[in-house]
Nucleic acid binder design. Structure first.
Lengths: 332, 332
DNA sequence: CTGAAAGCGCTAACAT
DNA sequence: ATGTTAGCGCTTTCAG
């Protein structure tokens, strides 16, 4: 098993351990012939370097620490981890995953664990887009779905642009009375989307109408919000909804009220949760939050920083693609 | 930073590195006074042992490898990882997470990575309950939501019992014409639940009626299955549905057919996906697949094995708790 | 109760 | 092009 060491290979190949190391890593100068012989012997013996020893010597573990505040409740988490995982694997690195359950004390302690494990860089992901204070860490640090100012690299959705695009999608389809259903809790997501919606409506010479109910942003919230919206403006023909679960709630209220989607009411969501958006009837047109891509980018960024490239922090806002399905009626 | 080493602490405390090691780990015999002084100095200096060095020396990394076939698509994954994560953290261990995207080649390679990282034990989780062939690994290996015979430890839901309990729930509520909606793909989940359903109906002197449509088991499948079921037996009053997404589809067909839930049709699902079960209207009565618990158990099991306890493999079938909400009409 | 010495398995300098 | 010598930072015998 993991038993065979570099010395065994060296002995079997009739060279020194140093040469084996050089041959296998491609570092020093080794004759092509020796290199291939060593490689073959290593393969035959099933040799794989002990990464712990390598890490101790090189002072580089090739392990990335991944901290998240809440890895379970949403399927988002999985996609971020997956993207990070894939990028890490492609770069020859591995992820050490840890989560804080939204408890700052636990978080600090978990970061401590990662530090003791000598991870080369830290990824810090939050399940809801928000501003955070970053943990102290000496190596590269990159935030996912969070931001902390220009001094630290981060990637998150462009919420304002999301509001603009979603509203424009409905306007372009010929709708004029477009309402925005959201929650009244503070947050980068709700605020950015509301602003984008508002500016777009105003820009089109239309009165914005935002209906915000108490959180969390789930189906219940969507039900209540649409009830309020319809009561206030029975002639609304389209709703831009904060997220997919709320859109699901809007569907429920629409059904109760006898409003057909999309004939009587067009609906646009945000998230593109496979479990919801594609399963609703009619399938929901929504904007995809690119979690997988964010995870990928973050790792790539961290690895480049470790390699001495990209020395400046970079803050990126990523635009979300629309996923057109069947919940928008085109009236043009 | 991670700069301060054991020698720094030793110097500052006026003792040898050996004594610091002993004092901090509680291993050797150290006077209470020395111990507390060392502890204080270590704390003041912000010292934390370099786990890489420790691991190399002790030949124990205190890191667990977590392999999953598909960590993203379902929210299941997150809960398994979370449970594993919590248990690991409680045991002073860390998780190294890797995923294979259902590709055997990638899987083998990822296991190799974990082995090179010298993980102490391997957890192997699959997103759908199935039988697997286990990767070669020299340490403790435990399967989550998968099984591989009595020789390897594993934990998975008791599917048969699930079928029995779900059916009984409906029978106990006074229903007689209970249909089972499922898919026609092979799998431990569908087969076990069908068997449990069938035996329970037969045991009650009632004719089983299972309607299986093509997979995957999503809302579309649920819609089709309920259509078929109603066509075959318009008098059915209750449906035990394979999973929550299919139950969501059944809701959609019921709405289209003018069947009210639960007055005209009672529905029971399986999964307890927060995103669906709690959000449906009426909220779905379902059986919870205990992913968090399975992740926890697996880690606990692996750690005990590492500690020399539990030397025999153990295969556990875990019974799933019912989560009563509003989709079952009680007619007794 | 404390410390000196000897590595864990590997790779980076530095010869040769 | 290859080998020798030193450690990486820690924990363990084993002496004192």
């Amino acid at each position: 098993m993991g038993r065979v060491g570099i010395r065994d290979v060296a002995r079997a190949a009739g060279v020194s351990a140093t040469t084996v190391s050089h041959a296998l890593s491609g570092q020093g100068k080794v004759s092509a012939e020796t290199r291939s012989r060593v490689a073959r012997v290593a393969r035959d013996l099933g040799y794989a370097p002990n990464r712990v020893a390598t890490a101790l010597r090189r002072r580089r573990t090739d392990v990335l620490g991944f901290v998240s505040d809440e890895i379970a409740t949403t399927p988002f988490a999985g996609r971020i981890v997956l993207g990070a995982q894939d990028a890490a694997s492609a770069a020859g690195m591995t992820l050490m995953v840890v989560n804080s359950n939204r408890d700052p004390g636990v978080e600090a302690q978990q970061v401590e664990v990662l530090r003791a494990q000598q991870v080369d860089a830290l990824l810090y992901a939050t399940m809801f887009h928000r501003r955070v204070t970053v943990p102290a860490f000496s190596g590269p640090l990159v935030l996912v779905n969070a931001e902390a100012g220009p001094a630290v690299s981060s990637i998150a959705p462009d919420e304002y642009r999301l509001g603009v695009d979603a509203t424009r999608l409905l306007l372009d389809a010929g709708h004029r009375r477009v309402v925005h259903l959201t929650i009244d809790e503070p947050g980068l997501g709700v605020e950015g989307r509301v602003a984008g919606y508002r500016d777009t409506m105003l820009g089109a010479g239309l009165p914005p109408h935002v209906v915000a109910v108490g959180g969390p942003a789930d189906a219940r919230a969507g039900r209540e919000a649409l009830e309020l919206a319809v009561a206030a403006d029975p002639d609304a023909t389209a709703a831009f909804v904060f997220n997919d679960p709320m859109a699901m709630g809007a569907y429920q209220t629409a059904a109760r009220l006898g409003l057909r989607i999309p004939q009587d009411l067009s609906v646009v969501g945000v998230d593109d949760l496979e479990l919801i958006a594609a399963q609703l009837l009619p399938a929901l047109t929504t904007f995809q939050l690119p979690h997988y891509e964010m995870g990928r980018w973050a790792v790539t960024r961290a690895v480049r920083a470790l390699d001495g490239l990209d020395t400046q922090p970079e803050v990126v806002s990523i635009v979300c693609a629309e996923v057109v399905r069947e919940s928008v009626d085109v009236r043009v």
